[in-house]
Write a protein that binds this DNA or RNA. Structure first.
Lengths: 340, 340
DNA sequence: CTGAAAGCGCTTACAG
DNA sequence: CTGAAAGCGCTTACAG
């Protein structure tokens, strides 16, 4: 069934049916009523392939989420969806695997769905550097800074990763911990022209916290890499404890890794926080349900979502790119022991 | 840039370019090489709107996942993806909210992407009863039974919910628990013609476990409804304990609710399993990282995925609908105490 | 093996 | 306000 059937049955031309369907002005009430009645009667649904093919500009927005399982992103997406709905704007959401290329997807979406704007939840600097020029609509990168990338159509809303990690580490150091292990993401693939990635920035924060207190920090010895997963955290905590049995605390660069680490510590017969303290990062819902409740750096999902959408809408109205930093908050749970 | 540009630059017609792009037979090696070189050079990407519009039949499969945050489904999807990849088949994955209509989406996908087959991860009987007739390709409903629905193009692969719940409850009863609370999903919307939904089946399993042991079970008093979320489980456990302070165990119909419940029990100053035992359902990764490790009914994600895909492929080859039950397994964690 | 042409289901100037 | 027509970017019989 196509728009032709609706035209035939309603007695109007396909042009008029199309105008009714699109809410164009310049249609008589009689035509509108008749066409809508027939659409209802026939259960007609327009073919979006044909529609997108013709349309020179879409009417909606897109959100590209990197990591289906990422709970921080899930919370942000939910809020964004509500905002778009309240604003009466359509929004398509695309989920992709951690290791897929979000910029490639954006380029395709841009070509084929022609959204008014795109929000990225998470993203790799590398991919942006390489191919973002193929994306022509206004975009906002949420959660990762994009100021040094220098694209005129790419804004960003993010948390200060250096400061966040510094505060997390500072919290442990100030509680008297002197041997702290760090579980981070990939911090080895440093290439100067790519600037620092999130993991590197957080590691720098750890270093900074030590420096400020006149304490030594050796990333090679005190930090290990892991996948952002339960298993990754579990296994990395094991490596850290094997290497340095004298550790009194672990800072994991995501809550999900921290939760994995907690179990690893527990499985070695150590208590949390009596024997080993632990701090996470992100502030996902899960962190508040752990036993012990996880101390963590909470990214402000609500404000990240709100500012992300606001900036995108503003940019769609002709505004330039802006790069905004959203405050984070240290949430004190039950997973850190104050020494002595 | 379109296929026309490629045609022009390569010196062949758009027809030939299209044939090369689609790997059709009957193209000279010279043409193929030249066209592919130009495609590479220009970075040409075909417009899938136009493609889908023309195509009478797609070449790929679709997976429709109900619930972005559902970790059981996430595990199954991952395996399915790998299987399709290994079989050299393309697959599109669609995620939708818990409360959206998966059958509506399937109907649209069917009309516009024309997949060879669709896998549903999760689904509401109601939606299928009402609109599945609009879905014409072979489908497999994974995780929920579809035998009583009677659609000739709808197979199912699922776990026996009655037996699963019965074994979980039996495990608690056999451990000496006599006052067990149940946290379930929606079991009130029973309408005879819709048959039982998952929550109802599991509740029946609970009842059955009691009956078999000559013990009484009063669903109205011993069970509460909750959303399938951490918060839902937390809050439901609170209601159960308020109502019956003498409970010695709780059976939650999903691990995620169980994890919420654990925290609720903990927050009331009760120990797990010393004061209150708890059993979950699903066997998601998370369950193994809890402290205490969660005792749960593990659905066999691997076999659900494998059989789901196999049955779909078989059906695509002209096979009829089949309805398969996959065995589950009780995983004993650390969350159940044996009385006396 | 290749090209010219019809057509997928829409939208949107262009006339009237 | 409405209709006839062109065209979006492809695929695929149909000839040759």
């Amino acid at each position: 069934m196509t728009i032709k059937d609706v035209a035939q049955r309603s007695g109007y031309s396909v042009g008029t049916v199309s105008r009714v369907l699109n809410g164009s002005s310049g249609v008589s009430k009689a035509a509108r009523d008749k066409v809508l009645a027939v659409v209802e009667e026939l259960g007609f649904k327009p073919n979006s392939n044909a529609r997108q093919l013709k349309l020179r500009e879409g009417r909606g927005y897109s959100i590209i989420v990197k990591g289906v399982g990422n709970r921080l992103f899930a919370g942000i997406v939910e809020k964004m969806q509500r905002m778009f709905k309240d604003a009466g704007r359509a929004v398509d959401i695309y989920y992709l695997e951690e290791d897929s290329d979000e910029v490639d997807l954006a380029a395709q979406v841009c070509r084929e769905r022609k959204p008014l704007g795109i929000l990225f939840l998470g993203g790799n600097r590398e991919n942006f550097v390489r191919r973002f020029s193929a994306v022509t609509c206004p975009c906002v990168l949420v959660t990762t800074r994009a100021d040094t990338l220098g694209f005129p159509n790419l804004s960003s809303v993010s948390t200060d990763d250096v400061a966040g990690a510094a505060q997390a580490m500072g919290h442990l150091l100030d509680a008297g911990h002197r041997a702290v292990g760090v579980i981070g993401g990939d911090s080895r693939t440093f290439t100067p022209e790519m600037d620092y990635n999130t993991s590197q920035l957080r590691l720098i924060g750890c270093q900074q916290a030590h420096l400020q207190r006149g304490l030594p920090f050796d990333p090679d010895r005190q930090s290990v890499q892991a996948r952002y997963s339960l298993e990754g955290g579990y296994e990395a905590a094991g490596r850290l404890l094997d290497r340095s049995p004298d550790l009194t605390a672990i800072l994991a660069m995501s809550d999900i890794m921290a939760i994995g680490a907690i179990r690893a510590i527990h499985d070695r017969g150590l208590r949390i926080p009596e024997d080993v303290s632990i701090v996470g990062y992100d502030g996902i819902e899960q962190a508040a349900y752990c036993i012990p409740r996880l101390t963590t750096i909470q990214q402000n999902a609500d404000r990240l979502a709100r500012r992300g959408v606001d900036i995108l809408l503003q940019q769609t109205d002709g505004g330039g790119a802006v790069h905004e930093i959203i405050p984070f908050q240290l949430i004190c749970g039950e997973s850190v022991r104050t020494m002595k």
